[in-house]
Amino acid sequence: MDKGANNINLVTPDHYIPQIVSAIDMARKRNFHLPFVYNCSGYETADMILMLDGYIDVYLPDFKFMSPEIASRYCNTPDYASYAKQSIAEMVRQCGGAKTNFNQYGIMQKGVIVRHLQLPGHIADSKSVITYLYNTYGDDIYISIMNQYTPMEGIEEDFPELGHKIAPEEYDELVDYAIDIGVENGFIQEGDTADESFIPAFDNEGV
């Protein structure tokens, strides 16, 4: 807090849930009041998220795929959407809807932001994700539509369709679709976000 942090961002933390609960208990006993953000893949069970009830202030899950075939091809998780639907429902129960709030600087203090990273050539699946989220939760959540997909060197050897960035017209089509169906609580990205700044150095610095 003294160094100006806005929150504590717990990234890919699923395997540490018991330790997280214990650590937050200890922090609160010491009068620690920053929001805790749970930054995750969406591939969690509802029971896992239930363990965090009362501990997490902002949930930041992905909703990567709706299609079992696409989820299986890229992540070997044909049941991805089933788990994402269950886990996000529990997140919204805990922190969504009328519980959502922002501070005077526009920084979320409580709520749910669901991210969707658009993949090249899969506009129909992306539309299915956005449709599901809006039809299910309306303005109870915020939807972040991301265009920052960055093809890693060599990926085209196994997945040729993923060997290029999102075309601007693909992203514009998805954003326009979200607006057309009524999404207002949303975030979009502008410009060429798919550059090296989104790729970690993987040199263990800062770990």
Rank of each mutant, 00 (worst) to 15 (best):
A46Y: 15
A46P: 06
A46D: 14
D47F: 10
D47Q: 11
M48E: 15
M48K: 14
I49Y: 02
I49T: 03
M51N: 13
M51K: 15
M51D: 12
M51F: 12
L52H: 13
D53S: 13
D53K: 15
D53G: 11
I56R: 02
D57F: 03
D57Y: 02
V58G: 07
Y59C: 07
Y59P: 06
L60R: 03
P61S: 11
P61K: 07
D62L: 02
F63P: 01
K64I: 04
F65E: 02
M66I: 01
S67T: 07
P68W: 09
P68I: 00
P68S: 03
E69C: 01
I70E: 05
I70Q: 04
S72R: 15
S72F: 06
S72W: 03
R73P: 03
R73E: 09
R73K: 14
R73M: 11
R73T: 08
R73G: 00
Y74V: 07
Y74R: 07
N76S: 10
N76G: 08
T77N: 14
Y80S: 02
Y80G: 03
Y80D: 06
Y80H: 07
Y80I: 02
A81N: 04
A81W: 00
A81R: 00
A81E: 04
A81P: 01
A81S: 13
S82R: 04
S82A: 12
Y83W: 15
K85E: 15
K85N: 01
S87Y: 05
S87G: 10
I88E: 12
A89G: 15
A89V: 03
E90I: 07
E90D: 09
E90Y: 13
M91Y: 06
V92M: 09
R93Q: 07
R93L: 12
Q94V: 07
Q94H: 13
Q94I: 14
C95F: 01
C95R: 10
G96I: 07
G96Y: 06
G97Y: 08
A98I: 12
T100H: 06
T100Q: 12
T100P: 01
N101E: 13
N103Y: 05
Q104R: 07
Q104H: 10
Q104S: 10
Y105W: 04
G106R: 08
G106W: 04
G106A: 03
I107D: 08
M108Q: 11
K110N: 11
K110P: 04
G111Q: 07
V112K: 01
V112T: 08
V112N: 07
I113F: 01
I113L: 10
R115T: 00
R115Y: 05
H116F: 02
H116I: 00
H116Y: 00
L117I: 04
Q118A: 14
Q118N: 08
Q118M: 15
Q118P: 00
L119M: 14
L119D: 02
L119V: 03
L119H: 05
P120R: 09
G121C: 11
G121M: 04
G121Y: 06
H122M: 09
H122N: 08
H122W: 13
H122F: 12
H122C: 09
I123Q: 09
I123R: 02
I123N: 03
I123W: 00
A124G: 02
D125N: 00
D125R: 00
S126W: 03
S126D: 06
